[in-house]
């Protein structure tokens, strides 16, 4: 099987009474918002999967479910997340007990967090934080762990001696490199990058992506790279999964999804990004807004904003269709101009 297989995942969050914000009509019942509503995706060993979609579409929630790191109020309602460990055994991550889970985290799958300035403890030396992560999982002498941190630092392009410094003594790019070093400390099979370059300037972004590309060819890393920026996908990804309103609407190879998008949402998303060297035109926006996750509709979640929606689209939720070559799309409509 694939390294990671998420099947029909549903995650909801407790939320107060609807009414304000985007709630339709007054007096909507207190309930749960379906942040992830039947998402399926898989990651093969050695592959980088780009997970794209706009804010609030469930990218991060899906990814953090893998480590069972949902914030308070969040709950996995159904589905399965199967992960193939180093020893070849396949486990359902949703069925793990607390101790098993702690042993799994970081050793098998680690995360490069969004704003790494906040992902490092401000009052602990950067090196010590990585040593701590190593010691949580392996019986190593402290000196050996410290040597390993030094090597990791040098690998991601930071002088080893700076492991003794505190996070505020690092620049934003260095902190992100240190975070990557920490993510690699235990040689995990899967690294989740949650918008790893969002808070960085463009030059540093490029450096970080070059580093990620180097590391994956060197270590054969499998990654999930979460982003809302389509332009970064091409740099490092093999495959792309597009999420909308908690479901994966389209997935396939980079070429399939970006060059020949089949789902109307993917097409509109691609059109909203300017292409360097393409014809000069203003990026298009998508009319309407994402659906209220507290009140799921029976049909296709994109139907209200889709120019091609038919009656059927509002009533039946489309199942993923295979278009050949691993290209999956969840849309009832055929190819349309």
């Amino acid at each position: 099987m694939a390294l990671l297989e998420i099947r029909d995942l549903r995650v909801s969050f407790a939320c107060g009474p609807a009414g304000g914000g985007r709630g339709r009509g007054a007096g909507a019942a207190e309930g749960r918002a379906r942040a992830v509503d039947g998402a399926s995706l898989s990651v093969e060993a050695g592959e980088v999967l780009g997970l794209v979609g706009e804010s609030g579409c469930g990218k991060t929630t899906t990814a953090l479910s893998i480590l069972r790191l949902l914030p308070p109020g969040g709950r996995v309602d159904s589905g399965s997340i199967r992960f193939e460990g180093r020893d070849g055994t396949v486990r359902d991550l949703l069925a793990m007990g607390e101790a098993e889970l702690r042993a799994f985290r970081w050793k098998e799958a680690s995360v490069v967090f969004q704003g790494s300035m906040n992902a490092l403890n401000p009052v602990q030396r950067v090196g010590d934080q990585i040593v701590e992560a190593i010691e949580l999982h392996e019986e190593v002498e402290r000196e050996e762990a410290v040597r390993r941190v030094k090597r990791l630092f040098e690998r991601v392009g930071i002088e080893g001696s700076r492991a003794k410094e505190y996070p505020h003594e690092f620049s934003g790019g260095m902190r992100q490199r240190a975070m990557i070093a920490m993510a690699l400390a235990l040689g995990p099979r899967l690294v989740i990058g949650d918008e790893p370059t969002t808070a960085l300037d463009v030059m540093v972004q490029a450096q970080i992506f070059r580093l990620i590309a180097e590391l994956r060819s060197e270590l054969g890393l499998s990654m999930i790279l979460i982003t809302h920026d389509l332009s970064v996908l091409g740099e490092v990804c093999d495959r792309v999964a597009v999420m909308y309103a908690g479901t994966v609407v389209e997935s396939g190879s980079l070429g399939q999804v970006l060059e020949a998008p089949e789902h109307p949402y993917t097409r509109r998303l691609a059109a909203s990004f300017p292409r360097p060297g393409g014809e000069r035109r203003l990026p298009e926006s998508i009319p309407g807004e994402p659906p209220d996750l507290r009140r799921p509709e029976p049909g296709c979640p994109f139907a209200p904003r889709c120019g091609d929606a038919r009656e059927e689209c509002r009533e039946t939720r489309p199942a993923p269709r295979e278009l050949g070559g691993g290209h999956l799309v969840s849309c009832l409509g055929g190819r349309r101009g």
Binding site: F104, R105, W106, S110
Partner: peptide, 24 residues
Amino acid sequence: QFIERARATGASGARIVLRHLLPN
């Protein structure tokens, strides 16, 4: 976020309180 990160590295609740919360 560093509290969430500590949890992601597999630290237990008691460890997070003593090593990461208390010093802050």
